[in-house]
């Protein structure tokens, strides 16, 4: 703990670089997984269509998928001989870059965001949709109203997605490579320092990681607004 405080006070540049990259990669991945997961969860919770159960089964499977397997999948897809890497498109990130780490983390977190959002939306009384529509809501406005009513659960889904990637190590190690100054993040730094026997430094980075996760969750909690009060 003391070393963690010392690292922060002395503004260790290497540490700040790692913290900044961790936050950048995880927040970008969380943004993508929220943009995909929340609408997907809302669609699965509010509509009925052929193949819905299959999509839900796949989503549930994704919620428990080992990150290291996702890392392997992304590695194979993005490697120079892989189906995406061989395209040499500027839109497809190369292996051992922060972009590849964002792709892996997005795939890890979006099923969690989608699955929990679906559950939250399904928990809202179906009659509410009818009543909102009777007030003149369009389908889009109705969906928004339901998501707003389910906001406690939707924010929990985003927090769960964030938790799954800020603490994740296998996939980012595999597709990022833990390259100093380029793809080293807090979790991979902990693994490295532990393997070198620097347990104090590893612990200090761990404490910083915990602190960051706590602050991020406090910030996200504010999105739930006053939903908890007066109930």
């Amino acid at each position: 703990m003391f070393q963690a405080i010392q690292l922060i006070i002395t503004r260790d540049p290497a540490l700040f670089e790692i913290v900044a990259l961790s936050l950048r990669v995880s927040s970008t991945a969380l943004l993508f997984s929220t943009l995909v997961g929340v609408p997907l969860g809302a669609a699965l919770g509010l509509s009925r269509f052929a193949g819905r159960r299959l999509v839900i089964a796949l989503l549930y499977t994704g919620m428990g998928f080992p990150p290291v397997v996702i890392g392997l999948f992304v590695y194979l897809m993005l490697s120079r001989s892989g189906p995406l890497g061989s395209l040499n498109s500027p839109l497809i990130p190369a292996l051992f870059t922060p972009g590849a780490m964002v792709v892996a983390q997005s795939i890890i977190s979006f099923p969690l965001v989608g699955g929990f959002t679906m559950a939250a939306v399904m928990g809202v009384d179906p009659q509410l949709r009818q009543q909102v529509r009777s007030l003149g809501a369009t389908p889009w406005q109705t969906t928004l109203a339901v998501l707003t009513e389910a906001r406690v659960g939707v924010v929990v889904s985003i927090i769960a997605g964030f938790g799954s990637i800020i603490s994740e190590v296998g996939a980012v190690m595999m597709v990022g490579g833990n390259i100093e100054g380029r793809t080293r993040v807090l979790t991979t730094a902990i693994v490295l320092e532990t393997s070198k026997g620097n347990f104090d430094l590893a612990m200090a980075i761990g404490v910083i990681l915990l602190g960051l996760a706590f602050l991020a969750n406090v910030a996200m909690l504010s999105l739930q607004g006053r939903a908890f009060s007066n109930e």
């Binding site: 009543q131 009777s134 007030l135 707003t148 009513e149």
Partner: peptide
Amino acid sequence: RRVTTVFQSPLLLNRSVGANVSYGLRL
């Protein structure tokens, strides 16, 4: 939007009374 219903069991949004009443206008 020229027609609206008051249901037997009203489901109000988890907001203030004023926000509930202004909801249809905001739509």
